[in-house]
């Protein structure tokens, strides 16, 4: 955790020694405790993107859900601008919620299949009191912002491709102009070409809106493209971290065993031609491989 100490900009989100376990089985909550997160510390700074790398099942998505307040930690604290998010009430909570949005992995599952595009995008606006008459117009400008044509407002989710739907989810996350967006494997279910397009869009949006990102992924190439700093997670712990991702590119991944294993896992999971096909659009060379 050495990289996360010292004098720096004030943190937007701080995760302090958070633990979480689940109980399995039994009518009234069973006895088998499964530890998912064993004392995680993280720091997301305003306007920066922190990449969180880990294999599937290492607890990184749980960290994301804890930060969004969709689940509660067993111990430890999650701070938003210095205040514990699980102690927020009323107006404070509303304000915090408004500033914390999310884009999930599976865009098909993340939208209500019965709603038209503009209603999906306008949902956060509806929750925060935008007048009914303005919703459609606001949704349209958001949809244009993420590079979708304005004539798709009334289309249903099944009429969109995965990439287009992910843009729609990004538009929804942007609707309230949040200070923080959680990207939980947000490009992992897309093909290579779509991945780089969406990553470009996200990088562009980050510069334009100044929002901070926590980008959760199992693929280092994705994170190298967009992150400013990086944390690696394994079996519910942060095993190593880089405050500036450029340091990692200098060091090379082979000096960190967990990182090297994760990169290896991603590469072996893909057919070799996939790397050639996308022509190094997401470079690995920089990581010293």
């Amino acid at each position: 955790m050495s990289a996360f100490t010292g004098k720096r900009a004030p943190a937007l989100i701080e995760v302090v020694n958070v633990r979480k376990s689940y109980r399995q089985g039994g009518l009234f909550g069973g006895k088998n405790k499964v530890d998912v997160i064993n004392g995680v510390d993280l720091r997301v700074e305003a306007g920066r993107c922190l990449g969180l790398l880990g294999a599937s099942g290492c607890g990184k998505s749980t960290v994301g859900r804890l930060i969004l307040g969709l689940e509660y930690p067993d111990s430890g604290r999650i701070l938003w601008k210095g205040g514990d998010i699980n102690a927020f009430g009323g107006e404070e909570r509303r304000l915090w919620r408004r500033n914390n949005q999310v884009v999930f992995q599976n865009s098909h599952g993340a939208v209500n299949p019965g709603l038209p595009a503009w209603k999906i995008v306008a949902e956060p606006l509806m929750n925060y009191g935008t007048p009914k008459g303005e919703l459609r117009g606001r949704a349209e400008s958001l949809i244009r912002d993420v590079g979708l044509p304005g004539d798709c407002l009334d289309k249903k989710p099944h009429q969109f491709s995965g990439g287009e739907l992910q843009r729609l989810c990004i538009a929804r996350a942007l609707a309230l102009a949040p200070e923080f967006i959680l990207l939980d494997e947000s490009v992992s279910s897309l093909d290579m070409a779509n991945q780089s397009v969406i990553l470009e869009l996200l990088a562009d949006l980050k510069n334009r809106t100044g929002a901070a990102f926590l980008f959760i992924s199992h693929d280092l190439r994705v994170l190298l493209n967009i992150s400013d700093s990086l944390a690696v997670m394994d079996e519910g712990r942060i095993t190593s971290s880089w405050d500036d991702i450029a340091d990692l590119e200098k060091e090379g991944v082979q000096y960190d065993p967990t990182l090297a294993r994760l990169v290896e896992a991603v590469l072996t999971a893909e057919p070799p031609e996939a790397h050639e096909a996308h022509g190094g659009g997401v470079p690995l060379e920089g990581a010293g491989i």
């Binding site: 859900r65 969004l68 969709l70 509303r94 919620r97 408004r98 914390n100 949005q101 999310v102 999930f104 599976n106 599952g109 993340a110 939208v111 209500n112 019965g114 949902e123 956060p124 929750n127 925060y128 989810c169 929804r172 609707a175 309230l176």
Partner: peptide
């Protein structure tokens, strides 16, 4: 437990709103 219900919660919908908008109709 569908992702879009989680997304609706994250988008600031209260329990009742989320239920009426995403669960009740189906």
């Amino acid at each position: 437990n569908r992702t879009y219900v989680l997304a609706a919660k994250a988008a600031g919908g209260g329990r009742v709103k989320v239920f009426l908008r995403h669960i009740f109709p189906q």
